[in-house]
Design a binder for these strands. Structure first.
Lengths: 365, 365
DNA sequence: CCAGTCGCTGAAAACGTTTACAGCGATCCA
DNA sequence: TGGATCGCTGTAAACGTTTTCAGCGACTGG
């Protein structure tokens, strides 16, 4: 009953042509808004409507050489940061008439390379990739990519690929400085894996800010672990031995996990110890107390990456023309978790439910 | 440099055939593992390797009539519940060799219908849809769907579509009973929109459990709002006037928002007031104190939906054979947010808080 | 030694579009 | 009134596969 096509499948351009008594070329032309005589146009339109014709996207793709699909590959769809990126990307691509293929690589490099290679099967017109580590093999794969790629992350200079990076060095430094300004002196650091780009950068920012503030770098105040909530809890517990008065965490997941460790020991945040994270993901607002966090512009980066990609596709700028790199500026978003220790704020400060953030320098004091 | 194909594009089956000195048919056969003479096989393999041949997925789709792509459309990718579903679906479909197209409908019905219609353009082989409301138009669109669809949600009996539902009536009732058993007597309810299926069901469970426990239904203890964190905060604030000793929320987002409202007022959870949510999403674990929540089997439902869909595709069961419906059993996950209050109330002394599923006395007709 | 069989191969059609090209009648201008 | 122009139309090729079909040579069995 549903299908009124020839017999089994959907109506095709051929059915329409037959029904309207014209050639398939005319059908195609009418349906694509090219010129045609008035009554031809009308008959085609009517036939298409009656038969419920919808052009076959696959056939179109084959002819046109483009699928109008884009792929987004990120390490872990469980991390709200990537969800924010998906959102931003989605909104740009949808408007441009592209569909979005999702790929969660679970942070395994081999999977990232597979995605890169899969560009060869022409399933999607382009790729936005968030690699967790960048190996030589990645670079080689990027250079030989069979279509436009935009990387969200930091690439070695000279890599012929558009990229969008966060300035997590500056971001981390800003957070540490903020903790210092609000009176913290033993600022511990829960970092992700040291051999990842984010891990290395955040470590650099941490050390730089310590130096700037005249604080010593103390190894006992630093922990390395995988990015994740449970890992944050474990790391915080082990760091407590060193009696920190603040915990700076390399992302919000770690910070949230760390908070739980502190709270379950009866420590008060921020009265006894401050906690700050990075990414300013939805977790930062979901946490209690709400987490101070460094907004690394995830949405912004997603949006920008999508725009760069679309530009390569539609704008037609072929590979040679200068790889472009954008850096999203970090922005410290101060919330309750880092109020000064002595300021006798009651344990539960209502966090001004801020859609916009306080000024970067404002330590809320 | 990258491309060693004819001149511009990727190598095709024709290039390989020429390079190997065989016909394109032989190339296709060899590459698809059909029988061929030893040296033919070898020459084709070598040619393909040398030229870096990868079959064009679009051409394959056109010929084969299937894209090996599936679409998942849900209301809001910002809600961790749907992320959990994406995860579960992804893992099933990836293993079966399907790619996943994502679509966030932002809970607008028109968008859901558009997705349903877009099945006609043959972009994907099937669809998993999570509708927020089900209108007559939805039902009509479902019946005329141009490909297999699995709905995650409750459909009117008789709808010829596979579906996977949660038993949120029983789930809600179980949570309310749990609150009652742990000594709560003024159990407020923060519900989502009453005209959605989840909203209606949860309300039903709430009322049924109240009745069962001999508690009166008090309108002042009930709020309706959109699903969301901020909405939960607002609703909780307005409900506080009615002096509840527990807040049962229709999902974790509402519960989290509500917790924030309570904590900001200096109320202690669970000492002064208990909070429970539904979905047992990652938010429940992320919250402080960790939220008691009803696991409605999101991952399970995602997994099952994917399996049903794949079965329609590969198992070849054509539309007629009986739409199948699975119901995921709810499971109460007790966490800190609903521990008994400091001073237990007079009459009923609660037994040990049950970590397993709610009692089988099911209020559903 | 011949007919039949078998394994392998290539030509060609097909999937559903878009588009280059040529043909056609009507219109225009000289 | 005749040739050129114009607007519209249809035929056919092309996109890159898979698959049917028939052909071909080499076996096998009688």
């Amino acid at each position: 009953m549903p299908n009124s096509g020839q017999h089994g499948g959907q109506p095709t351009i051929v059915s329409i042509a037959a029904h309207a008594g014209v050639s398939i070329a005319s059908v195609s032309r009418v349906l694509n808004g090219q010129g045609a005589r008035r009554d031809t146009t009308e008959r085609v339109r009517r036939a298409a409507a009656e038969l419920g014709y919808v052009p076959n996207a696959v056939a179109r793709s084959l002819k046109g050489g483009r699928t109008r699909q884009l792929t987004f590959a990120m390490p872990d769809i469980g991390n709200p940061v990537y969800v924010a990126m998906v959102r931003a990307i989605q909104s740009v691509t949808k408007q441009a008439g592209y569909r979005l293929l999702l790929h969660s690589t679970e942070a395994v490099a081999e999977d990232e390379l597979a995605v890169l290679r899969s560009l060869r099967d022409r399933t999607s017109d382009g790729l936005i990739l968030v690699p967790i580590r960048i190996t030589d093999e990645h670079l080689r794969a990027l250079e030989n990519a069979a279509g436009p790629v935009v990387v969200i992350g930091s690439l070695p200079p000279g890599t012929p690929v558009d990229s969008v990076r966060a300035d997590s060095v500056a971001g981390a430094a800003g957070a540490v400085r903020h903790l210092y300004r609000t009176g913290r002196r033993r600022i511990a650091f829960v970092n992700g894996p040291a051999d990842t780009v984010p891990g290395a950068n955040r470590a650099e920012g941490y050390r730089a800010a310590l130096a700037e503030c005249g604080l010593p770098y103390d190894e006992r105040l630093v922990a390395h672990t995988e990015f994740g909530i449970a890992e944050g809890t474990a790391a915080a517990e082990s760091l407590l031995a060193a009696r920190p008065d603040a915990l700076f965490c390399a992302n919000d997941q770690l910070a949230l996990g760390a908070s739980h460790a502190l709270l379950s020991r009866g420590l008060r945040i921020p009265a006894d110890i401050a906690v700050a994270g990075m990414d300013d993901s939805s977790l930062a607002r979901a946490a209690w107390p709400p987490l101070t966090s460094v907004d690394l512009g995830s949405s912004e980066r997603g949006r920008r990456a999508a725009e760069l990609l679309l530009d390569r596709l539609d704008g037609g700028a072929p590979p040679p023309p200068e790889p472009r790199t954008t850096t999203a500026p970090p922005r410290l978003v101060v919330r309750a978790s880092t109020a000064p220790p002595d300021a006798p704020l009651p344990p539960h400060v209502p966090p001004s439910p801020d859609p916009t953030s306080p000024s970067p320098t404002d330590p809320r004091a």
